[in-house]
């Protein structure tokens, strides 16, 4: 049986479009609101990345940092985040969920415990920003055993040798970081070059679903229509911040934005 993440890709491939993957921070701006946002955007997105906020994030730019600090300040805890996912999974329009976070949160929860909770609440995949290959070998195997996708990251600095080894050890989905940047940076690489790197990865193993993230926004997304999937994060976090500061409803605004993103790649 295919896992829900692979199923989602199968569906979007049939529709001849990339999967739309959104990133929002759990607990931004509150536990309740972040759940409402997930429910609203899952009408348009195919896979939902849920950010586990951390207060010393070494790879996140200003937008996601702001969201994460806001969530932590409002008291979000790891167990709340699992609850958000399990509540979301009970909703009628639920989609596959991927956690994205930093290793210390998993380490403190205990690797085995963390995986157990992921299974129980319905988390389908994990991206651990600061647990690269080969350091992640043991943990990713544990994930696989429990039918959780451990999603390997690749970047423009990844050597060819590494590309091959990492792809070999990866599960169904891989994440290509488009450029040298923290999240939320302006796209400083040409789409042509990014797509060339993307093809290089696909050539190693065409079966792996490879998504592109970093620098993907409403403005740039249509350049990457011929890919397996695209991740939009910072623009969504920014929209939440903007909505809050202008006293508008973030749920409605974010949902509008994600619907627009979806149209651009459909």
């Amino acid at each position: 049986m295919l896992n829900p993440i692979s199923l989602a890709f199968k569906k979007t491939k049939k529709e001849m479009r990339p999967a739309l993957i959104t990133y929002t921070v759990a607990g931004d701006s509150s536990k309740k609101q972040s759940l409402e946002i997930l429910k609203a955007i899952s009408n348009y997105a195919d896979i939902l990345e849920v950010g586990v906020p951390h207060n010393t994030p070494v790879a996140d730019g200003g937008q996601i940092q702001t969201s994460a600090y806001r969530a932590i300040k409002n008291g979000i805890k790891m167990n709340d985040i699992f609850e958000i996912v399990s509540d979301f999974k009970k909703s009628k329009n639920s989609k596959p969920v991927i956690f994205m976070g930093y290793y210390n949160m998993i380490f403190q929860y205990g690797e085995n415990n963390f995986i157990k909770q992921c299974k129980k609440s319905g988390v389908n995949g994990l991206i651990v920003v600061d647990l690269p290959w080969p350091e992640n070998k043991v943990f990713s195997k544990k994930c696989k055993k429990n039918s959780i996708n451990f999603i390997q990251l690749l970047s423009p600095t990844t050597s060819n040798k590494r590309l091959k080894s990492i792809t070999k050890d990866s599960h169904d989905m891989i994440y290509y970081i488009s450029m040298l940047s923290t999240t939320g940076g302006k796209l400083k690489e040409s789409p042509k070059k990014i797509l060339a790197n993307y093809k290089k990865i696909k050539y190693i193993n065409p079966k792996k679903n490879c998504v592109i993230g970093f620098g993907i926004t409403e403005k740039t997304i249509s350049n990457f229509k011929n890919t397996d999937g695209l991740v939009v994060g910072s623009q969504i976090c920014k929209e939440i911040t903007r909505s809050l500061s202008s006293r508008q409803n973030p749920v409605i605004n974010v949902s509008k934005l994600v619907s627009k993103l979806r149209k651009k790649i459909s």
Binding site: V58, A59, Y103, V129, D130, L131, P132, W133, E135, L153, L154, S155, P156, T157, T158, S159, R162, I177, L180
Partner: peptide, 12 residues
């Protein structure tokens, strides 16, 4: 110790 770093920093 170790190297808990984003993939991008592995090479440098």
């Amino acid at each position: 110790g170790g190297n808990f770093v984003p993939e991008t920093l592995k090479k440098p």
